[in-house]
């Protein structure tokens, strides 16, 4: 239990002086009593957090070993849900492949885009910097404005892309962008990227502004000649905490693609071309009411997300070393 191991704050010499042995549990209890105000301050948040985040995760993991349809009493089925998921569910395999495609493309690209644009914007004068920040950040908070892209990729000749391509003679007939398996995934990725300059982008802009100028001047004395060297040897290492933070947000978002896919490609999409783990989860959770099976999907998603995050954190610690 990490809880008890951290709480032994009583220094060793003190223990030697005291002839009376105080058990660890009693010590912890004393500590808790002394700090009771802090627990009271934290309690409203922690109760809600426990009820709607911690318990659901644990519950979801447990439920994934049961058959449960919301009507009958749950029946224990062991690893059945998982074996069915990985061995007997073709659609899940499509969803898994699509999700990884999204994540592998949108995750790193959006992360690099967040950093690259923040880095360029940082060189501008404060007023233009504020305007550019707004332009790049706005799509991510503009609500469901991404349905504008429906008009861009609309399948008739009034769609912007079709209209443009026909006008300039690239194609003769409009292309059904959103119902053609070959294009759907790419289109969802483009729109997802458009939406993805969010909180991490702001964190990078802020991080770049707090870099110590004297470090850069000292670097110039030590032989740093151009912006790329400055970027690698000074900027990136000074921003490592923000880089870690941004990575967590971008990775989590890139594995959770669903809304954009549903809005653009429909649910379910043509031949499951834009089906993701999340839409698969919605299919079983809110339409088929196979809660145990849906929980197994949720657990797999949870493990993938946390695993990808932990792995990236390890890699990012090597930046600039």
């Amino acid at each position: 239990m990490p809880e008890t191991s951290q709480t032994v704050i009583v220094p060793v010499p003190d223990l030697i002086k005291q002839p009376v042995k105080v058990s660890r549990l009693a010590q912890t209890f004393q500590e808790i009593k002394k700090n009771k105000h802090y627990y009271i301050l934290m309690s409203p948040y922690m109760i809600i957090f426990t009820l709607f985040t911690i318990i659901p995760v644990v519950f979801s993991i447990c439920l994934s070993f049961f058959y449960f349809n919301m009507l009958e009493f749950p029946r224990f089925v062991g690893w059945d849900n998982y074996s069915r998921l990985f061995l007997n569910d073709d659609v899940f395999m499509i969803a898994l492949r699509n999700t990884f495609m999204f994540a592998v493309i949108t995750g790193p690209i959006s992360y690099l885009a967040c950093f690259l644009f923040a880095w360029i914007i940082n060189e501008l004068s404060p007023k233009i910097r504020a305007i550019m920040t707004l332009i790049f950040y706005a799509p991510s908070i503009a609500g469901n404005v991404y349905f504008i892209w429906l008009i861009v990729f609309s399948g008739d000749r009034y769609g912007y892309l079709n209209g443009f391509l026909i006008k300039f003679g690239f194609i003769l007939e409009p292309i059904q962008w959103l119902t053609n398996e070959n294009y759907i995934l790419t289109i969802v990725i483009i729109v997802q990227l458009w939406l993805s300059l969010g909180t991490s982008f702001l964190a990078f802009i802020a991080g770049l502004q707090t870099i110590d100028r004297t470090l850069i001047e000292a670097g110039a004395v030590d032989g740093i000649r151009n912006r790329w060297q400055e970027l690698w040897f000074i900027t990136l290492p000074s921003m490592r905490p923000q880089l870690l933070f941004g990575a967590v947000l971008q990775i989590t978002a890139s594995f959770a693609v669903a809304d954009v896919s549903i809005a653009l490609a429909g649910f379910p999409s043509v031949n499951y071309a834009a089906h993701t783990i999340v839409t698969h989860l919605m299919d079983y959770g809110t339409i088929r009411f196979e809660m145990g099976y849906a929980s197994a999907i949720a657990t797999v998603l949870f493990l993938i997300m946390v695993g990808a995050n932990k792995l990236t954190q390890k890699l990012l610690r090597k930046v600039g070393e």
Binding site: Q6, I32, Y39, F49, P56, V57, I251, T299, N309
Partner: peptide
């Protein structure tokens, strides 16, 4: 402040940044 449980509470919050709300949709 430092008090029993403060570290583990904070690491749990950081961990919960690493997955999205859809994971908990059904139990919720």
């Amino acid at each position: 402040h430092k008090f029993p449980g403060s570290q583990i509470i904070f690491s749990t919050v950081v961990l919960s940044l690493m997955f999205s709300g859809t994971v908990t949709a059904i139990p919720n």
